[in-house]
Computed example of a mutant assay.
Amino acid sequence: MYPEVIIHNSVSLDHAVRGFEVDLGLHYGVLQALKPGAVLAGSATAKSGIEIYQDINEPETEADRHRPEVRQDDPRPIFVIVDSRGVLKDLLHFYRKMEHTKDVVVLVSEATPESYLDYLREREYPFIRCGRSRVDLRGAILELGERFGITRVVSDSGPDLNDVLIQEGIADTISLIVHPVIVGGEEKRLFCQVGGPVTLELQKAVPMEGGTVHLTYTLKD
């Protein structure tokens, strides 16, 4: 059975994903309430998260080089990163140590540098190789479900990955926390690369703290 795929993001009223203060507690509280089996992110989003919230020069320890034991009854999601180009080489240990995830899985393609694959193998990071020049997201998510028993994937990423999930008909649901601010300017926006009309059906609109609203839509066939 193909996993359910939910796009989750915090945006301004004009769908900017940067240029305003995101309520991180609210964002991740809603994400956890979605009960994902896996949280999906692109390599650029994952790297920027390290640069913003971590000391990027923190060295890898010997313990970081080994995959932790993963218990079947561990309710935490796995963290799945789309990284065909090997952007996160020498940086994945930051995510291996995150307390809110139980494992790190990397999605790569046939074009992924062999040096990056060696890095993943040496450090026991599970990876799924699917697609030629870039990751075949539909196929990789199917394999993610089959290999790891994942039934729900929540994308917590930027516009590039999320727009592809819509373009390729992979996403089932969109979860948006809309902040009461208009960013304007040339900040990157969600849905700008979708490429055409996509019909949605509103499931709920929930007012939240600070004037934010949580909107949930399903994508109609």
Rank of each mutant, 00 (worst) to 15 (best):
L215W: 14
V39G: 14
V80P: 01
P59Y: 06
H214T: 04
E21P: 00
F94W: 01
S48R: 14
T173H: 13
Q167P: 03
A41C: 09
L91P: 01
E186A: 12
G158Y: 07
Y119C: 09
V153Y: 01
R76I: 02
T218N: 11
D64L: 10
D160S: 15
M208I: 01
I150F: 05
V213Y: 05
L200F: 11
A63V: 11
T212D: 08
S133Q: 12
D23G: 06
F94E: 04
T218Q: 03
V11T: 15
H93Y: 13
V106S: 01
N9W: 06
L91F: 15
P113S: 11
V198N: 10
S133W: 05
G211F: 05
G211P: 01
P207T: 05
E110Y: 03
R121I: 05
M208D: 02
I78Y: 01
K35Q: 15
E209N: 12
I78N: 00
H179C: 09
G158T: 10
V104K: 11
I78P: 00
D163E: 05
I50P: 03
I128C: 01
G149F: 10
L31S: 07
E110K: 11
G169Q: 09
L219W: 09
V154F: 10
R71E: 14
L200D: 09
G145N: 07
D14Y: 03
V154H: 10
D74R: 04
R85H: 11
I50G: 04
H15V: 12
S175W: 12
R76W: 01
A44W: 10
V104D: 10
I78E: 01
S175E: 07
Q203N: 05
D118E: 15
F94I: 08
V30I: 15
R129F: 00
A16D: 11
G185I: 07
Q167L: 08
V108T: 15
R65W: 08
R132M: 04
D73K: 00
V5Q: 07
G145C: 06
F79P: 02
P59H: 06
H179I: 08
D64Q: 13
V22K: 14
V154W: 09
G49W: 00
P113D: 11
